[in-house]
């Protein structure tokens, strides 16, 4: 939201896109550059193009958050909860498994420090308890 955050974000996104652009996520690239490692998402296709989401997922979530918070719109498409439901498993306190968390590992890799997870759970919803 701030200009500093924007600048920092642009830089990290540039770096990430440059690094991830050619290589498949989930392992070390052939070039020898260390890559973030994370679990495979449960779905086959993200709600938007992968390239678009890499650059813009924060804007997409931000936009949806205000609609949900203030207008009670609870569509699933751009909901952070659904990101996590698809991209994360319940790591049950296991630190190794936590490092495989899609959001955590990639934010760590890009040195991004969003404060989403100060409040939002990193865990997917329990089946049955899901709302």
């Amino acid at each position: 939201m701030t200009c500093f955050a924007n600048l920092k974000r642009s830089l990290t996104v540039l770096a990430t896109v440059a690094l991830l652009g050619a290589s498949a996520p989930g392992g070390a690239a052939d070039s020898g550059i260390p890559m973030p490692s994370f679990m495979e998402p449960q779905g086959t296709q993200c709600v938007e193009d992968t390239d678009f989401m890499r650059r813009n997922h924060m804007e997409v979530i931000l936009d949806h958050r205000d609609k949900t918070m203030h207008e009670g719109i609870r569509t699933k498409k751009h909901s952070l909860k659904e990101c996590i439901n698809c991209h994360a498993a319940d790591y049950q306190g296991d630190e190794k498994a936590r490092e495989q968390h899609f959001c955590v590992s990639c934010h760590q890799y890009t040195a991004a420090q969003p404060d989403c997870f100060q409040c939002h759970s990193l865990k997917p919803e329990q089946p049955g308890a899901a709302r």
């Binding site: 909860k81 100060q118 409040c119 939002h120 759970s121 865990k123 997917p124 919803e125």
Partner: peptide, 16 residues
């Protein structure tokens, strides 16, 4: 204080 055990549908966190 810092929280980690939130419910997915009930976000809550330190300093708010």
């Amino acid at each position: 204080e810092t929280l980690t055990d939130q419910k997915p549908y009930a976000p809550r966190g330190k300093g708010t």
